[in-house]
Simulated scan of single mutants.
Amino acid sequence: MFTGIIRHRGRVISISKKKDIIVLEIKPNKKFLVSKGDSVSINGVCSTVMDKRPDSFKVEYMVETQKRTTVKDFKLEDNLNLEKSLKLSDLVDGHLVTGHVDVKGTIEFVQGVPPSRMLGIKVPREYISFIAPKGSIAVDGVGLTPIESGNGIFTVALVPYTLSNTNLGDKVKGDIVNVEIDILAKYMAQLIGLRVNIKKDAKKKTNQVEDRK
Rank of each mutant, 00 (worst) to 15 (best):
T3P: 11
G193P: 02
V34L: 05
E126N: 11
D73Q: 14
S14C: 05
V103S: 10
G143M: 04
I15H: 01
I15V: 06
A157Q: 08
K27M: 11
S56K: 08
E77P: 05
I147A: 10
P160G: 06
P114M: 05
R212F: 13
P124N: 03
R212I: 12
F57V: 05
T3C: 01
D90L: 04
L168D: 05
L80Y: 05
K84R: 14
S56R: 10
D93P: 01
I131D: 11
E25F: 00
V23I: 06
D55W: 07
L194I: 07
K67T: 09
V156C: 06
S164A: 12
Y127A: 00
V209A: 14
A138H: 03
T206N: 15
K204Y: 10
G44E: 02
D38N: 07
K203P: 01
K173W: 02
L96P: 08
S136M: 11
A189F: 09
S149I: 09
I15E: 02
N151W: 13
K30Q: 15
V196N: 09
K204P: 03
I192W: 11
I192G: 08
V40D: 03
P124W: 06
G174S: 00
V172M: 15
N167D: 09
A132M: 13
V101Q: 02
S136N: 15
K200M: 10
V92L: 14
L33A: 14
G44R: 06
F109N: 13
V179M: 02
D201H: 15
R125C: 12
I26F: 04
Y61L: 04
L24A: 00
P160L: 11
R68P: 00
R11H: 14
S149P: 10
Q66H: 04
N178H: 00
R117N: 07
N207D: 12
E210A: 14
A157M: 11
V12W: 04
F154A: 06
K84F: 13
P115L: 08
V139D: 02
E126L: 10
E180C: 04
V40Q: 02
L96A: 03
I21Q: 06
N79C: 12
V92Q: 00
K203I: 09
I22P: 06
K205H: 12
K30N: 15
D175K: 09
G120V: 06
D38L: 06
S89R: 06
E108S: 15
V142N: 12
A132K: 10
I153W: 01
A189P: 05
G174R: 11
V63W: 01
V34I: 14
L119P: 10
D175H: 08
I137A: 09
I26Q: 07
E83P: 01
V63D: 06
Y127L: 08
E126R: 10
S14G: 10
I183W: 05
L80C: 04
P133T: 02
E108V: 01
I21K: 08
S116A: 06
T162L: 08
S35I: 15
K213I: 11
T70Q: 01
I181S: 01
L158G: 04
I15P: 00
K134N: 15
K75L: 14
D90S: 02
T3V: 00
S35W: 08
S116H: 09
S47D: 07
V139H: 02
